[in-house]
Amino acid sequence: MQCLLCNRHFNKRLTIKELLWPQPIEWPLICEHCRSGFTAIQGSTCPICCAPQATAMVCRECRYWQKRYPWKLRHTALYRYNEAMKDYMHRYKFNGDYRLRMIFTAAMTAAVATQSADVVVPIPVTEETMQKRGFNQVVGLLTGINLCHCLGTRVQHKLAQSSKNRHERLQTPQPFKLVEPAHLGGQRVLLVDDVYTTGRTIYHAAQLAYDAGAASVTSLSLAR
């Protein structure tokens, strides 16, 4: 097998169960060395946004959002946004290597299944991004999941969040619009994004979901 990230050839050592159990064998897509670079979020985190930290207290970002919105948005993230994840996102999103979605689709599918949601809404990308990249990186991570594409973007071109500092991110005006608001009335909505940084993007989307009559809104991201 060849690792999708480092291109090295590697072997998988089959267990006794895999040898004897009459089920398809799940072959790894990346080698153990590359896999070890990704760090799952464990231990103490902010109870609202899942930010890794030394205590289980509500973090500064969430205290900021609590002052601006009358509702709390519980967020779940799977991995830390470390150097390995940063490099992965660069290659997947900005270099447009669509194969790399497969590395985390199983983890994201399993995570969505643990959420109490009626509707799963991916964060959209602009038409310019779709034309340039050819895919929405969030949708790519959610293969096999029934999605509600009820959010659209207000602008055709926008500055990438990754290029902004914290103040610029927090001051970003509403970038989304509802294109099918009727789908959210009375529903438990799960918003999904690739990376949660300050929460600005997710809170913009959540506000529109509540405006459309959503009963509750939670969110999920691959990285935090």
Rank of each mutant, 00 (worst) to 15 (best):
C34T: 10
N95V: 12
Y69E: 00
L141Q: 02
T76Y: 06
R13W: 10
G43H: 04
Q2R: 11
A206V: 01
Y203N: 00
T15A: 09
L19V: 11
R8W: 01
I123T: 11
V155I: 10
D118V: 11
G186M: 04
Y79I: 13
E128S: 14
A182F: 00
Y69I: 06
L184M: 07
L19S: 04
A160P: 15
C150I: 03
A212M: 06
T197S: 15
G37S: 06
N165M: 15
C6S: 05
A56H: 03
Y203Q: 05
A106L: 07
T218A: 15
Y81G: 04
V119P: 12
T15E: 11
L29K: 11
M102H: 15
Q137F: 06
G96H: 08
R99P: 09
L170Y: 04
W65L: 13
K93G: 07
P181R: 09
R68E: 09
N146S: 13
H167S: 15
D118W: 13
D118F: 07
E32F: 06
C6A: 09
T55K: 02
W71T: 01
K86T: 03
Y79V: 07
L222N: 12
T153I: 09
A160E: 15
R63Y: 07
S162T: 08
R80T: 13
L191C: 12
R224E: 03
C34S: 08
H157I: 13
F104H: 05
L29N: 02
P47F: 09
L20W: 02
V125G: 00
R166C: 12
V120C: 01
E127P: 04
T126I: 00
T197E: 14
Q156R: 06
K93A: 07
A107H: 14
R68F: 03
T197K: 13
L5Y: 00
G37T: 00
S163Y: 07
S219A: 14
G43P: 08
E168F: 11
S219V: 14
G199F: 12
L14M: 04
R68I: 08
F176I: 06
R169K: 14
V189N: 12
A113I: 12
Q174W: 12
N146A: 15
D193Y: 12
I202N: 03
H9K: 12
R60W: 05
L147D: 02
Q131V: 01
W71R: 09
M102T: 14
L208A: 00
Q207F: 05
E26Q: 13
V125Y: 02
C31H: 06
E18N: 00
A223P: 01
R133T: 12
Q207I: 01
T109A: 14
I48Y: 02
Y203A: 00
E168P: 03
R169H: 02
R166M: 14
T198G: 14
N146M: 10
G37L: 07
Q161P: 05
I30V: 15
P173N: 03
H157G: 13
Q2V: 09
F94A: 10
K67T: 09
Y81C: 10
Q42L: 04
H149D: 11
M130A: 02
